[in-house]
Design a protein around this nucleic acid. Structure first.
Lengths: 77, 77
DNA sequence: TTCAAATGTTGCATTAATGCTACATAGCAT
DNA sequence: ATGCTATGTAGCATTAATGCAACATTTGAA
């Protein structure tokens, strides 16, 4: 599978982050990653490790399945 | 964070796999990875990518949060 | 016992995820 | 205009996740 460039993972990180009034830097700090990493994830340039996904979900008070999906999200949740 | 050797991810893949009567090879085939990879994950020698976690959850009919956690699982679910 | 299936162990190669730095751009105050 | 904050882009280095092969061990069936 080689870390799947073919099968992307969609996410609503940006939407959930903005809903909490957080900047990328804020979220990065809460989660313990570089702020650029949040940017890469929001732009879906790559998909996170499970550890990071779990941390982000916790930081944003969401279920992993609410934030990340193999299928595109519909508009407005 | 450098992919966290410090903060492990616990899982109940083996339990869920056995409950369905699947061998590691069976699960690996359903999920599209090498059968050794399932072994590594069950032994918690490393934690999967989010893509793989999503696929495993789907193959085992479980929520990601039911299968993977940052905190150890209690006995018998 | 013998055989096969399932699993464990080791080792090596490849690559995506992450860290980090630097610079550009856009928007919003002042 | 000036400055600050947030974000985008590009490049490079490191490392964990995965593939894969070979061999050992365990377990259960015949």
């Amino acid at each position: 599978m080689s870390r799947n460039p073919e099968e992307p993972v969609y996410n609503r990180i940006e939407e959930a982050r903005l809903a909490l009034g957080l900047s990328r830097q804020d979220l990065a700090d809460k989660v313990g990653v570089h702020y650029q990493t949040i940017g890469y994830l929001e732009r879906e340039e790559y998909s996170p490790s499970l550890v990071l996904a779990l941390r982000i979900a916790k930081a944003l008070n969401q279920e992993v399945s609410e934030l990340f999906s193999q299928n595109p999200f519909k508009k407005g949740k």
